[in-house]
Design a protein around this nucleic acid. Structure first.
Lengths: 256, 256
DNA sequence: GACTATGGTCAGACCAACTGACCACGTCGG
DNA sequence: CCGACGTGGTCAGTTGGTCTGACCATAGTC
């Protein structure tokens, strides 16, 4: 297999003996450039930055963006192809139409993880909303409202995902605490990169359920933005809490 | 200069043109092995894992622990010496007695950062305490109590720092949510690695103030452990909140 | 004084990554 | 229809980070 994570750990030498005897230091992590590029591309595709079927930028363009040589981009691309996330079509590389579900985890494990994820979201996002109500600049409030207004019940899934992330990130930025926003983005990354969340949308079989999700989330976002605009922290917290509960319920139901 | 962060970013080639035109992808990060080792050692020293004046493990021992060659450890060590964090004494390498204050930030910036840091701690740590009260296993409760009991008003600063971290980490682990604990540890890392926190203890001029900090924090930890043991979430949250406020006040006062 | 462990230094090898070029093949406009 | 252009595919050569294994000088120990 050319995909089996060639030399990530010790490159065959230090593994001979035992690692550090007592547990003072862990061995340093080693990630090749191509592995980094591959991971970032995987994340981008799972995030929906590139829709299924969409053409990726050319390898040379990606070299510019990542600041790496083409050999590295190509190695990463090989990885994506073996994961069946992308495919060559004629002269271009396209995102696969049907993103394979990479989650091989057990059921309970995944359900448990979703539960944990949303617990963390509640812990962080509700205070974030409260702070945002109190501290957001006029410009940030306007941005949130504008973003919320962009949600349309009939919008394509593609655009919904982009907007969804943009909205939550804008909320995080508006809380006036860079560190907190950073922390929060880490949580969101974990969510958006999870295949479960992606499949909640892309793999949901009937279109009606997807439309329902889009409509419900759009409504919730508008409510949150309104609360921020109105300067009502309690209402904002309630709306966020309800929104999170709604999304979590849908995800758990899908996994059940 | 051998210390000027040689080739971290683009290695001199891609920087010729502009980076990725639109902001789709950031250039990948590049960290050499020696840089990783250096950063980990710096963190360890700032964390107080090695006290000022204490001898470091031998270079060969560090090779084992980090799983790297001695050349890499030596490069890292050169960095530490230029930072004046360590010094050679005879045949051994010792942590410098007087850790230099690397913070070159402005005053307001640092104060603002402390404020943000503790805001995040409050957001995360209070719910963590609540969850820990509700979910901790008997073993975890016992561990917390045992840890808290180890705090003695007259304990050496060195040991206090270790115990302090151990206690808060144990609390995080007891909350029954791996993701949340992970998140929380990130915040703690940011705190313990900040030179301001280190200097709060090591640089505090008179011994009386340090003793007061140790005593106060020890008391707070015992109170928190008692609340967890008693299964009283409200009291636990109050105690944590008070403890955080106390530490933040001391840090801000020092910076003022 | 011999032994041992440590820091200091070096030469050789390996490999990831970059560079720059070339080719074959689609696509698109003239 | 044909040629220019952009794409993916491939390659040889170079650079730089890292590992290996050896050697030396010196400080501490028995």
């Amino acid at each position: 297999m050319s995909v089996s994570e060639p030399r990530t750990g010790t490159s065959g030498h230090a593994s001979a003996g035992r690692d550090g005897r007592d547990g003072r230091f862990e061995p340093v992590s080693r990630q090749t450039v191509s592995q980094q590029v591959r991971d970032r591309l995987v994340a981008s595709i799972r995030d929906g930055d590139f829709a299924p079927g969409q053409a990726l930028p050319s390898e040379r363009a990606l070299c510019d963006e990542f600041g790496v040589a083409r050999t590295s981009v190509r190695e990463a691309m090989q990885g994506l192809m073996s994961l069946q996330l992308v495919e060559r079509r004629g002269n271009r590389t396209h995102v696969a139409e049907h993103l394979p579900d990479v989650s091989v985890d057990g059921f309970d494990l995944r359900k448990e993880r979703v539960r944990e994820l949303f617990e963390v979201r509640r812990v962080i996002e509700i205070p974030v909303a409260e702070l945002a109500v109190c501290r957001a600049t006029a410009h940030e409030r306007a941005e949130l409202t504008a973003l919320a207004a962009l949600f349309v019940d009939t919008m394509p899934l593609e655009e919904f995902r982009r907007l969804d992330r943009a909205f939550h990130w804008a909320l995080a930025r508006a809380c006036g605490n860079r560190l907190l926003a950073e922390m929060y983005q880490k949580v969101l990354d974990a969510l958006f990169q999870s295949s479960d969340f992606g499949s909640l949308l892309y793999a949901t079989p009937n279109r009606k359920a997807v439309k329902e999700i889009v409509a419900s989330a759009g409504r919730a976002h508008r409510e949150i933005a309104a609360a921020v605009m109105a300067g009502d922290p309690v209402r904002a917290m309630e709306q966020v809490s309800a929104h999170l509960q709604d999304v979590e319920d849908r995800m758990v139901k899908r996994l059940a």
